[in-house]
Design a protein around this nucleic acid. Structure first.
Length: 605
RNA sequence: GCCCUCGUGGCUCAAUGGAUAGAGUAGUUGACUUCGAAUCAAAAGGUUGGGGGUUCGAAUCCCUCCGGGGGCGCCA
């Protein structure tokens, strides 16, 4: 928010230093870390150290940095809106003039509304591939992190100015599908899914795995079915198409519940043939070695790159000529760039596939595609069960997504019943749903991508403290104040009283949002936004406690009303980004506002 | 064997290479006649796994060791 001032002051500093014979390259700004003070800060340690090095002197760097800082504090011509410049132990602190800047921040937020925090369009086209479920299989909590992370990253990139193409890549063929079809034909023919489609599909898959291991002739029958599929037996293809659609319908149910959408879908079955063509090309170019029929087609990456044990060997095609995941990924990668004219292609895939991703990217680079450098693997750690048990559909250790949502919702309902017993039943249900979904999403997004999430019911359903409901509640409180002021945010007015420490802190935090969006986008880290949202909520709750709004005298009241409205807007924008279902938060507020028995359809648009 | 990753109060996690390492939670002590107590306040809790190094400055970068997890030629 203060880039113009930062640039102007930085230029002055460089000039002042140059007059003194000190060369400074670039100046990086940070916040002043003292509560109740706000402004921007920079240091001169580096300048002092470099000066000493250049002159070959041995000096006390801290002392010299302080000399430079105080020199600058003295000579700097502060632009309008700054109160004072101060040098402290090598730091230069520039304090904002509170009346000017508080008004500027609040006005900006209230003017930009749901676009506050948004950065200018970058012109960059980015495709983000995430979710990638297999059809004919269950969808469990282990898959949840991918969807939530991927969707949140898309929101953040979009908010930061990129054109984002949200893509799903569905595993609709392969052995697992044939296994499923075999089990269906043999034991469930004619049955149809109802209700929770994905669970029904997953149950049959689990049964298929079990029967595959226990029944003597299963292996042979499955292989025979695979052959029929391979020769495109119309009956099998028709069944495949029908059952695949069931899975897709089931996924739609889940995505709708999570409020996730995709702009484009790719299917493995679509890129199989083109994948085989790419493998042929690899062989032609002597990048791949065809060891068929004794062995598969392999790309010996370490040999090609002159590395040792770094890239290992990528298997690109089975010895029987059937395709692998890699076969299809090689083709899909180029298809994305051809079809969408991308500047960048992001893969949201868990960390266990890091080596594989590097192999794919390296192979594409060796093929000479110029866009190879624009491929990025956004890796994240998996969700485990306590005791470091990885969920597995084979071992029956999965926690089904629907079970989790149901359990979370009923736990939230209990709390609503306890805290707000007087609300209408349908209102309680809606609130329970919002609290539950927000809580689940927060638990996935509020830790670093590189950290393993250990799933246990207690932690996932703990709504106290640093969790989504805390933030939602702060939003509701803000809203509650505004409601009692008839939802009218007063027009801009000058500051006519001295802001308290906590008010300054709140405004300061709000003003950081655009920068945080930038950081979150650059590093693909929703965590930064999650942290900001929590900080905002915490500071707002503090403000709420310390600073009466409605009972205050007129000008204080109006100023604080605007501040509350701005804080509320900033929190809502953070939640929307973090994909804590903004729409539902609006519902929550709406119902607290009016006590509607049923949500107004308007809010579902 | 090689590669990647994580290690921060009892527990779960934060912290652009910068100022006094911050939250939540559990336990302790307080606050509803006050805009919604799903809240707030207070005290307590730390050799940032060990040891070196780089740097004016390291939880953060490099090396090494220890410990957890993951990956490494026909799964996805």
């Amino acid at each position: 928010m203060f880039e113009i001032e930062q640039r102007e002051i930085a230029k002055q500093i460089v000039d002042i230093c140059r007059n003194e014979g000190i060369e400074i390259e670039n100046i990086s700004w940070s916040w002043i870390p003292f509560s109740g003070n706000w402004g921007m800060a920079t240091t001169f340690f580096q300048a002092a150290a470099e000066e000493a090095r250049a002159k070959g002197l041995k000096i006390n760097v801290g002392k010299r940095a302080q000399e430079i800082a105080s020199l600058i504090a003295e000579r700097l011509q502060l632009p309008a809106g700054f109160e004072k410049a101060e040098s402290v132990r090598g730091y230069l602190n520039l304090y904002f003039s509170t009346p000017d800047y508080s008004q500027r921040v609040i006005d900006t937020v209230l003017h930009e509304k749901e676009n506050f925090g948004r950065n200018p369009r970058s012109g960059k086209r980015v495709m983000v591939e995430f979710s990638q479920p297999n059809t004919h299989k269950a969808f469990h909590v282990g898959h949840l992190r991918n969807v939530i992370l991927g969707n949140s990253v898309c929101n953040i990139l979009d908010f930061n100015g990129d054109t984002v193409i949200r893509t799903n890549y569905l595993g609709d063929i392969g052995l697992h599908v044939i296994k499923w079809l075999w089990c269906y034909l043999k034991y469930h023919e004619g049955e149809q899914p109802s209700g929770d489609i994905t669970r029904w599909m997953g149950d049959i898959y689990a049964e298929a795995s079990r029967r595959h291991e226990t029944e003597a002739d299963a292996e042979e029958e499955i292989r025979a079915l695979f052959a029929r599929w391979d020769s495109r037996d119309p009956k099998i293809v028709a069944l495949w198409e029908k059952t695949r659609q069931w899975s897709l319908d089931g996924f739609d149910q889940i995505y709708r519940a999570l409020n996730v959408r995709f702009d484009h879908l790719y299917f493995e079955s679509d890129v199989e043939d083109s994948g085989k063509e790419i493998v042929d090309k690899l062989i032609e170019k002597n990048l791949a070695v065809d060891e068929r029929p004794e062995g598969p087609v392999v790309v010996k990456l370490d040999e090609l790159c002159g590395t040792k044990d770094k890239y290992r060997v990528l298997v690109a095609l089975r010895s029987d000529g059937t395709s692998l995941y890699s076969t299809k990924d090689l083709s899909l990668a180029s298809r994305k760039f051809n079809e969408f004219n991308l500047d960048q292609s992001v893969y949201v895939i868990d960390v266990r596939q890091s080596l594989y991703m590097q192999q794919i990217f390296k192979t594409i680079e060796l093929m000479g595609y110029p866009w190879a450098k624009n491929l990025y693997h956004l890796s994240y750690e998996i969700v485990n069960l306590p005791g470091n048990v990885t969920m597995s559909s084979r071992d029956g250790t999965v926690v089904f997504l629907q079970d989790l949502i149901d359990e979370a919702t009923s736990r939230a309902k209990e709390i609503v019943n306890e805290k707000n017993p007087d609300l209408a039943e349908s209102t309680k249900d809606s609130i329970a749903q919002m609290v539950a979904m927000g809580g689940l999403k927060y638990s996935m997004l509020s830790r670093d991508n590189t950290k393993i999430v250990t799933f246990d019911w207690q932690a996932a359903l703990d709504f106290n403290g640093q969790a989504a409901p805390y933030i939602q509640y702060a939003g509701v409180r803000a809203n509650s104040i505004l409601r009692k002021a008839d939802m009218r945010v007063p027009a801009a007015l000058p500051l006519a009283y001295e802001l308290s420490e906590i008010e300054i802190e709140l405004i300061d935090l709000i003003s950081r949002m655009p920068k945080e969006v930038q950081r979150a986008a650059a590093e693909y880290k929703p965590l930064f936004i999650a942290n900001l949202a929590f900080d905002l909520a915490q500071t707002f709750n503090n403000f709420y406690r310390q600073c009466p709004v409605l009972q205050a005298e007129a000008n204080v009241r109006d100023y604080r009303l605007r501040l509350a409205a701005a804080a509320r807007q900033a929190m809502v924008n953070c939640l929307a980004l973090r994909e804590l279902i903004r729409l539902k938060l609006c519902d929550f507020e709406r119902m607290c506002l009016t006590g509607l028995e049923k949500p107004d359809p308007f809010f579902y648009e």
